[in-house]
Nucleic acid binder design. Structure first.
Lengths: 178, 178, 178, 178
DNA sequence: AATGAATGAGTATTCATTCAT
DNA sequence: TATGAATGAATACTCATTCAT
């Protein structure tokens, strides 16, 4: 709306805002449609700014996905850390398995990671953290299995035309954990 | 590399071969790098042939993914149909959950489907068939849950640096089904 | 609507119908968008039929424009030939100058003729015939001048947002001819 | 032909030169043959420069035709504004009606405008200005009629194998205006 | 006689990246 | 430090025309 010729030669934190913008673009349009131009447009900065702050598109993606993975893992962590009993831990798992959240971003990451080792590290660290979080309440084998179950439940819910109801999710989880 | 003036004006089944080539390219390079040129190169046909047989790149992708989904579902079906007892059905599930197969193709499809309704139908039909196949041996609720579990196990195995061993997969499945 | 695999191996008059189809396409989409494919589609014949009946796109355009020019000149001729007195001749001119008819086709022809000598002959023959028709009632100098006036009036009417009313056209013509 | 590694990274006014080049190409080859490549070649700039400065071919055409229409209207205006008496005004009209100038560009514009509303505005503004210029010397009705007459005379002169002589043009105009 | 398949040249457009200012 | 201009490689797609059947 503002027509003012926005002059912002000094703008600390711009790099940061660019990463957020990138994440928004990935979520909305997909990695394939994530271009320098689009990110710059969304962040409302000149195109040249992109290559000033990042040496390549890959760097942008890596930073964006890293940020997302960290945020998602933080959430996972916190939700599980808040549980005091095994019952509460199960409740947490049901919650996490039932909220598709940004599964799309995760899947975009998986695809991108298949061709970029740098991103593979991001997914692995993420999986690592999920497992550690589950191990606060379950033995390592169970943690690993439940982690996979959650992934499958979230994924199928996101893709399905009739996603599972919360009760159905709970049923699946409890069958496993009780 | 071949300098032979390859004359192949009459080539029935070319469309078919192009779809196969597309699938190979998707698997190897990803949807993002799947271009008319690359497919034509792999199939060893002139570029113009691509747009003669398909009206758009989307059509190519849709046909390729449809073929893949059908083949994968066929395999899933056959493996489960061969099982005579519940024990054998469990063996089949363990097998299917343990073979990453072309999980990469599946994930590429999920991402592509997120932005293309035509592809969404493909994924849904595929999920449908998986569930039906499982229902030959398990009640609908179980079938649905196991389907998600398999997806999660395959996905995590493919992404992980230390994928689950067959025994670990069996353990996860049996915990659920026994 | 008919799904019948229309078999029409023997089809005299097809060439003719193709020329008509071409004319329709030119009028609707312009020469620039007049392609073999489009004409074949409109005429509901296979693409190969186009190059079977015409050796080049230029030939198609030449035939189509020739047909149109002849039809338009015929109309012009008849309208003027029907006039018995100078008064009736003036009425005829007013009529002709007031009906934009297919001026678009004419302008398309002018542009195409600028780059194709074959088409230039078509326009010249057309102009010739118009003048001859006017000479049935007016001296050669007047005929030529009125021919130009008609062209200008028709063209401006077609391009203008507020085209001249019939009365305005009559005023312009009578000022000249009375 | 020049093999010099032409370094011209900084080139203010390039957009402007591109519009001029476009106009030259349209005049020489016609809108149909006016391509990004050809314009870039004529202006001696890399192809990519075209789409940097213009978002579409339509934009190029619109800018080029606008420039041409303005220049032509300027000329028309000046020629008529210079006339002090009705006699001189008639002389001016004779001049303008007798110089085919870039009638080809005008006709190309008419055709293009038939399919592009943006261009239609250009033709309408042009016609408007012509009429206003004529109204400096003639009443509105006369101005409008003479405008059409000029158009017809110029057009027929350009298309004819034996264009009118200046005397013939004068005869036509004076018959109308005297 | 007629046509579906095939082809290669060409088109507009997009984009990551480079660079002069 | 920051950026607008510039560039060349690549992409999807169109099309007149050729050709084997």
């Amino acid at each position: 709306m503002s027509d003012a010729p926005r002059r912002r030669r000094h703008d600390p934190g711009r790099r940061d805002r660019l990463i957020d913008a990138a994440l928004r673009v990935i979520a909305e349009k997909g990695v394939a449609a994530t271009t320098h131009r689009e990110i710059a447009r969304v962040a409302d900065v000149p195109l040249g700014s992109m290559t000033y702050h990042f040496t390549s598109m890959n760097e942008v993606l890596a930073e964006a996905f890293t940020r997302h993975a960290n945020a998602a893992a933080d959430h996972f962590d916190r939700r599980l850390a808040a549980a005091r009993t095994r019952e509460e831990a199960i409740d947490a798992v049901v919650d996490l398995a039932g909220s598709p959240g940004d599964i799309l971003l995760a899947v975009e990451l998986y695809v991108a990671a298949a061709r970029d080792p740098a991103l593979r590290k991001v997914t692995q660290a993420w999986m690592q953290r999920s497992r550690r979080a589950l191990e606060q309440h379950f033995d390592p084998t169970t943690a690993r299995e439940v982690d996979a179950l959650i992934e499958g439940l979230v994924l199928h819910s996101a893709l399905s035309t009739d996603p599972m109801t919360p009760e159905q999710v709970r049923h699946a989880v409890e069958r496993y954990l009780r």
